[in-house]
Amino acid sequence: MRVLRQSMRGRVGAHDYPLEPEAAPAAFRGQVQLDPNRCRGDAACARVCPSGAITVEETSTGWIWQLDDSRCVFCGLCADACANRAVSLSNAFELAVRQPDDMVTRAEFIRNEETD
């Protein structure tokens, strides 16, 4: 077989991950990413999120966008729902953290009345 012949010639079939990094394919749905310049705080992402991973909270001056990776199921509905293309699913899959709090990404926005 191809792999047996390969390894007999001294070539190892497997990648030496994690020493040799492994890139995810382009279509991969990894960690949710927010482009702060595109976010308008309309909370479409939070409304479609089936697991409550994304929340958008209105404040007196703007809004707080928050993502909890521990709740995310990587379905990508948020990216599909965002009319401004602010939310996307990146290729990041190495999501281990040391503290539970590090699972949460929080972005606070101040509403700019002139541009909105």
């Binding site: 394919p25 279509a27 991969f28 749905r29 379905c75 990508g76 699913l89």
Partner: peptide
């Protein structure tokens, strides 16, 4: 994974068709 973004083919089917 290359096809659907998931090794278990999640996220391919949607109500009414495919994503």
């Amino acid at each position: 994974e290359q096809f659907t973004g998931n090794r278990f083919l999640r996220g391919l089917s949607a109500i009414g068709g495919v994503r």
